[in-house]
Design a protein around this nucleic acid. Structure first.
Lengths: 116, 116
DNA sequence: TAAATATATAAGCAAATTATTATATAGTGA
DNA sequence: TCACTATATAATAATTTGCTTATATATTTA
């Protein structure tokens, strides 16, 4: 499980505040093991497109997620280069997988796959 | 380090939201290894008494801390019986000790000690 | 190039959060 | 019992958050 590194209180509070929202937290767990584009997340969380974009913006602003454009889609995933990535991972490791939400999408034929 | 237990997303988000405030987070870290009364926390965080009381109330409402009256003081500490205590501990274990704040108090002669 | 799709951003607003001020409750000790 | 200290709570004000609506930008495709 590796050695714990220390996260300053203020930095930790900033991260935890962002994760303290069930949509963002679930998204982070999903993005831990999947790349998703905005329109998939909109479907999954049954939220408006601007609402999802704004959540992603906050996560991106502190470097928790990164984006990669593939054609007209922008795929998000965890930013493994984040200073406190291991702190975040150890948190996410206590959460149940959110992958069944993607499986649902797949069933509905709404999963975006994209050859680079 | 023990086996990770799973915390439902909603429950985790609730806990993380509470910890996503630097005063509360620092207090939780302090209370992990110390019992403190309200007036000590007021000194330490340079906050008003109602403000500290309200933070403690929130933490107590979800069962993260517990209280014990000793004379005119009420001492708070982590509630080790919380359903997700191990989740909380694994979080706090990544944070730097806040004990020097108590040491400061001690120097100023403001530490409350109380024989039961 | 025009239409369609995906995403971002800005503005406005309602709900939630945090601090402040004022007051109530409880224990201590003269 | 009265004054004092510690704490909680209620009311209010200030701030922040998250959503919606409207619009802008970028990419694809006809």
């Amino acid at each position: 499980m590796g050695v714990k590194t220390v996260v300053e209180i203020e930095k930790a509070a900033q991260i935890l505040k962002l994760l303290g929202d069930k949509t963002r937290l679930s998204m982070m767990k999903l993005l831990q093991t999947n790349e998703c584009c905005v329109c998939e997340l909109v479907e999954i969380y049954n939220a408006s497109q601007p609402s999802i974009s704004q959540h992603l913006r906050k996560l991106k602003d502190v470097g928790l997620v990164k984006e990669k454009r593939k054609g007209q889609w922008i795929f998000y995933s965890l930013n493994q280069a984040h200073e406190h990535h291991d702190f975040v991972i150890s948190l996410l490791d206590s959460l149940p997988s959110q992958d069944e939400r993607l499986t649902e999408l797949e069933k509905q034929g709404l999963r975006i796959s994209c050859c680079e």
